[in-house]
Design a protein around this nucleic acid. Structure first.
Lengths: 114, 114
DNA sequence: AGAGAATATTCCTGTCAAGGGATATTAAAA
DNA sequence: TTTTAATATCCCTTGACAGGAATATTCTCT
């Protein structure tokens, strides 16, 4: 064998690569929401919302908390930790190669909070 | 309108979500390589390597440097910076919500330098 | 138990992207 | 200019996946 694609979980990336799912993730930044709330705010139909949430769920990006009739979906930390860790493993390489990465990052993280 | 999927470029994610392309990215960690070298080390055929490199190129993940007959592909910093920035924008949220994110991250980034 | 809300699942269909193979392009060397 | 190496592109087929619509499931409340 010859192609071991690092520790980064591919399914996390492909799950996030779908626009609607990305929208869901962005939406859940502000806290847990039910399926209908999600579907409504992103104006997609409920079944599609459920399907996308299922994918996100299967990849550990969200978790469910059943409460009466509703199901609250919330973000989970692990996949973001893993992603952060993976991206940061490139930092050393890029720092020497491009130099100003550190400053660039610091500027972005400080100023840009849209 | 209602679903603006943040500042994170979706194409970067979908480009990285493909196993072969992820392998290429991992391979290019150690420095620029030609198409044939890449194809060879990942035992894929040259045309597929070229195609994947084209996708990575179109998304700014790699850049080309022509040298005589060969074309050296190397990683670019920007997409990783953007990704890092995006992931870090979740950090605050997760820190309060999960508490131990900071320590977890610090541990990972310190120990794991494979 | 029956009605109704909230959510999940199934089936179908269309689209898009990846691999295979052949071939076109570009540049170097003879 | 013909050959040869390196790389890119084209066509075709196939598989994965997302949306649409209908339906099944689960829970709550009366």
């Amino acid at each position: 064998m010859s192609g071991k694609h690092s520790g980064m979980d591919m399914t996390t990336l492909s799950a996030l690569a779908e626009p609607n799912r990305m929208n869901i993730v962005e939406l859940l930044r502000d806290g847990p929401l039910t399926v209908n709330e999600i579907a409504e705010r992103l104006n997609m139909r409920q079944p599609q919302a459920s399907k996308h949430l299922k994918v996100l769920s299967e990849n550990g990006i969200v978790e469910v908390q059943a409460e009466a009739n509703r199901r609250y979906y919330r973000l989970r930390a692990e996949p973001f930790q893993a992603l952060d860790n993976w991206v940061n493993s490139f930092r050393g390489l890029m720092k020497e190669r491009f130099g100003n990465l550190d400053d660039y990052l610091k500027k972005l993280q400080d100023g840009d909070q849209s």
